[in-house]
Amino acid sequence: MARVTLSAAGAACPDTVWQRYAGLDQWASWSPQIKAVHSVARRLRPGMSGTVESVAGIRAAFTVEAVDHDRRTWTWRVRLGRVRIRLHHEVGARGRGSVTSLTMDGPLLVLLAYAPLARLALHRLVRP
């Protein structure tokens, strides 16, 4: 198992960035690899589960482990076949904008392959 951490800063205010995370229907607007999120719940909450569908039609199962709306952090596990990844997200203030970070734990080759897409999504997430 390996750990990779990515971050991005931008002009969007932290509350805006957090709402983009918290509302599952918004994920496809800032994450170019996501086509849809399938879950009964439409806002992040601990214990929720579902699938994330990629633009290529691949579906990965997920379970949200923790959400702290006040601290703007959340953690989830994603599973695609035998591959399992744990992702921890944080949003904070930086100057007049925000910074977001993503810490991923999983197989190193999978994390390295996913990192460019994740980096792009993080930069889009913090745009105004």
Rank of each mutant, 00 (worst) to 15 (best):
L109N: 15
H38G: 13
G50K: 02
V91Q: 11
G81N: 11
R43F: 01
S7K: 04
Y114K: 13
S31P: 03
V78S: 12
A93Y: 04
L125E: 05
G92M: 07
V126Q: 04
R79Q: 10
P107C: 05
D25E: 05
S39H: 09
R79P: 07
T75E: 04
S101Y: 04
M104T: 01
K35R: 02
V17A: 10
L108Y: 09
A61E: 07
G106T: 00
V110G: 04
L120F: 14
W74C: 11
M48F: 02
T63F: 01
D68H: 09
V4R: 14
H69E: 11
I85E: 14
S98A: 07
I58H: 13
A60K: 07
L44F: 10
A121L: 01
R77T: 06
V37D: 14
G10M: 13
T103M: 02
M1N: 11
S101G: 07
A93T: 03
H123N: 09
H88S: 14
P107D: 10
W27Y: 01
R86E: 10
T73V: 09
L24I: 01
W74Q: 04
V17S: 14
R94W: 08
L111W: 08
R45T: 01
V55F: 02
L6T: 04
L80P: 07
P46D: 11
M1W: 10
P128F: 03
H38P: 15
Q33N: 09
V52G: 10
S54W: 02
D105I: 07
T75M: 06
V83P: 12
W18E: 04
F62V: 02
M104A: 12
L24Q: 14
W30D: 03
R42K: 14
V4G: 14
V83Y: 03
G81Y: 06
A115T: 13
V52T: 02
G10S: 06
A2C: 08
A56L: 11
Y21E: 08
V52S: 05
T5L: 13
V55M: 07
A22M: 09
G50M: 00
